[in-house]
Each structure stands twice: as C-alpha cells, then as structure tokens.
Design a protein around this nucleic acid. Sequence first.
DNA 1: CCAATTCTTGACTGCTCGTTCCAGAAAGAG
DNA 2: CTCTTTCTGGAACGAGCAGTCAAGAATTGG
Lengths: 193, 193
Amino acid sequence: MARQKEFDRDEVLHKAMEVFWSRGFEAASMQDLVNHMGINRQSLYDTFGDKHTLYLQALDRYREVEGRKLFEVLERPGSVKKALRKLFAGVVETALGDPERRGCFMGNATSELAGRCKATAARTCSNIAATEEVFYRALLRGKKEGELKRVRHPRAVARFLYSGLQGLILMAKATQDRKTLEDVVKVMLSVVE
Amino acid sequence: MARQKEFDRDEVLHKAMEVFWSRGFEAASMQDLVNHMGINRQSLYDTFGDKHTLYLQALDRYREVEGRKLFEVLERPGSVKKALRKLFAGVVETALGDPERRGCFMGNATSELAGRCKATAARTCSNIAATEEVFYRALLRGKKEGELKRVRHPRAVARFLYSGLQGLILMAKATQDRKTLEDVVKVMLSVVE
DNA sequence: CCAATTCTTGACTGCTCGTTCCAGAAAGAG
DNA sequence: CTCTTTCTGGAACGAGCAGTCAAGAATTGG
C-alpha cells in the first residue's frame, strides 16, 4: 500500500462548489479552482477528473446540501404555511445578505448550461422533480391537517412554488430592493393562504 | 467624404444578440460573433468596440425588441386576464419550441453577469422596473374596467408577475414537460382570477 | 482626376485556457 | 531498509482567447 490522501475529498469538493457557484462554469478557471480548493493541480485532476466532471460533482453536492435544508424546513411538524413563509423570508434575507449575489447554483446551472449540456439538464430536471416532491408532500400534509383548504391542486402548486422560488432568486440578483422582493413573496404565498 | 458602411448596423447587432442570447457572454467567442454577424473582425471592433461593450448593446437591443412585444400584448384594449393568459401561454409555446432553449436573454444576463458586472446589473434592474410598470398599468386598467376586483395590491402583483415569468422561463430550460409548465402558469394566473 | 476615408483581408500579437508530463518528496507495507 | 504507490510542485503543452496592425481595395466628394 501507499500514501493516503492528505485532504478531505468532501471538503475540497465543497470549495470547488463555492467557486462554480460564484462564477459559473465558463468564468471559473482551473487556476481559480486550484487556488480556492487548496490542493495541487495534479491531485485535482487525479481526484475529480476534468473541469466539466468536477462541475457536475459540485452541482451534485450543492443539490445534496440545499436539498436537505429544504427538506428540514418543510418536513418539520407544525404549520406548513409558517414553514413556507419562513422558507421564502429566509431566501430573501440570504439574497440581500450576499454581496456576491450568487443566487442558486442549481438555477445558475440551469440558466448557463441546461440548454446545451445533457448532463446538466438531467441534473437540473431531476432536481426540479425532487424539490417539487418536497413541496408536494408539505402541501398534502397541510391539507390533511386542515390548514390549506384552498389548495385544490397541490401538484400544480408545488410546481408553481419551485418556479416562484427560482424567479425570486433570479430577481434578487438584479435588484436589492427589499420591498420588491417581499412583494413578490407576499403575492406568491397568497395562493396557499 | 468617404466610403459608407456596407452593412446595416441594426441587422448585425441583431445577429450579435442572437449569439449572446444562445451562448451567454463567456461562452460566446469573438470568432463565433465574427462568423454569425457576417462582417469583418475589424469592422466589428470599429463599430461596436470590445466584446463587453457589444454585449451590452446586444442586451439593450433585446430589451427594446422584447419590451415592445410585451407592451403590445398588454396595452391592447380588451380583457387583461385574456392578455395575461395569452402572454404566458405564448411563453410556454416559445420555450417548448426552441431546441436551443435560449430562455430570456435578460434573465440569462441577470443570472450570468448581474452579480459581478455593474453595467449589466443596471440594465437588468431597470428592465425589471420597466416590465413591472407594463404589468402594473395593465392591472390598473383591469381593475378600472372591473375585471380584476380581487387584485388588491397591483404593484406587488406586477412584481410577482415578473418574477413568475422569469421562473417559468428558467424552469423551461430544465424540463420540456408541457404539463409541468402549464401547471405553473395555471397557479400563477390564479392570483388575478 | 485626385485625395480622403473606410472598407476588407489575413496575419499576428500576448495571454490565458484546460490539461499533461515529469521528477522528487512522502508515507504505508513487508 | 526497501519497494511501491501517491502526493506535490512546477514546468510545459497546444489550442483558443480578445484584441491589434498593416496594407491594399473600394468608394465617396471635390
């Protein structure tokens, strides 16, 4: 046997995710990645393959991390309405508090690459399905618990919430006006009021 | 006096817009632009300046063209609800019919550059304001004509519609499932029903 | 005609890109 | 210790990048 890796794969991948999240695929250079990841160039290639492969792995990692967060907020027992309000309020705060305006890595990937990269399209598409499912389950629970009587088509509303979430995040990249974003959230959540 | 230009400035700018719209700023090379615009490299630089300047001009042109389309649909006399339905149905059709999945150039610019380019941020931001205004005027008209009695906060709804529009278009880049997109539209428009 | 201007063409700058190669240091196994 | 494997660092690769230059052709106005 031989020497073992001196860095933690997940940690380094997380750093790579940050770079791609901030700059996107095209604008991130391998030199940027080497610098931020803190490992040797060769180790990078040995461990993660080429730039595109690394990007996909970073995207997968993002999905895991953010997917879990969403799950935790929406599956927690209690009012679904409150959970949704908390979720979207949190999105607004995060957006306003990020000087880099990174937005959502999954949304960024959709915008930049989904149209011309099958692998990215597959990931963003399945992420929609997964996120939609989390919304859907929460809506069903809300209905069962008698909280969301006005929601007639939970599947459609779940899809709507995904779209609304992405629209909100995108909008926050252009404007930092809190009132504007809060207006969007207010109207968006009115469909589950 | 001297020789006059042999190409139409607006026509070539339109071609440049198509390139940036399809590929984004980073992924579009000057060689791509030279090829598609059909003019000489030197003429390109003489007429439009460097790549970034050309990009901004292409973005401005897109805003002009698409802004006018939106205006025409929403300012036309008649039912505002119908106009909104037509607008969003059209967006879905366009999205499903575009094999390149270009989405909205303004949205793409927001996603790719607004976070790190002031000039792009300014344009996308003012585009939000302008589009919001068109929605707002249509909503006001709908209220005045007694069609949109349930709309209490037209300003907020206008902002919501912009966000919803962008969310829908982004989503269409990831999934080509018509039902999904139509679900989104259905719920989105329920706030003005 | 002439002079001025701008077109077109193609080669040509540096520079940065993603990726690979190589040589040596480091560390586990026998 | 020795062997083997992997990590590390830096140099190097060819390709493509944005942008420039120079020279000739073309077209205008006087």
